[in-house]
Amino acid sequence: MKRLILPLTAFLFFIMEGSFANLLAGDIFGGDKIIVPRFIMILVAFITIYGSRRTGMVYGFILGIMYDVVYTEILGIYMFMLPFFAYLIAKIMRIFQSNLLVTILTSLVFITLLEVIVYQINLLIGFAHMEFNTFLEIRLVPTLLLNLAFLIVFSYPLKRMIEKQELESAGE
């Protein structure tokens, strides 16, 4: 049963992202801003840092495929980016100490990277028509603020949960 906690959390985050997106698009949060929940990216970053690189990349790949199929209907982008980012995060984390603050900052940096790269790909295939300044103003800044709030609330429980899982699987 305990082994299922992480996959279930991942699935819950995945569903939450879709429902949240509809909620955040509403007028309560200001309809003219585009706020993108990036909970999956955060989860992949945490798994990579507190778990292992391999687990991080596997989760990134599976969640990425599901994201592409269920949400964006453009296959490939997230399926490729999430495991690739997990790999990069693992490389970077060899240099830094992994305390909670560094983890939060790393997550935010990689959310920014993800946003910018996905924006560029969409520009390339003709889905995005936004200028870079507009992108920064109505999309990137609100997105980072939301995800920072999410990180502040959930980073500690997430860290504990993943570390516990890691200990258990190492002990077997």
Partner: peptide, 15 residues
Amino acid sequence: TVIGRNPDRWNELIT
């Protein structure tokens, strides 16, 4: 009823 929305809002899709 709407049950979800594409979180990456480039291709605006709702489910």
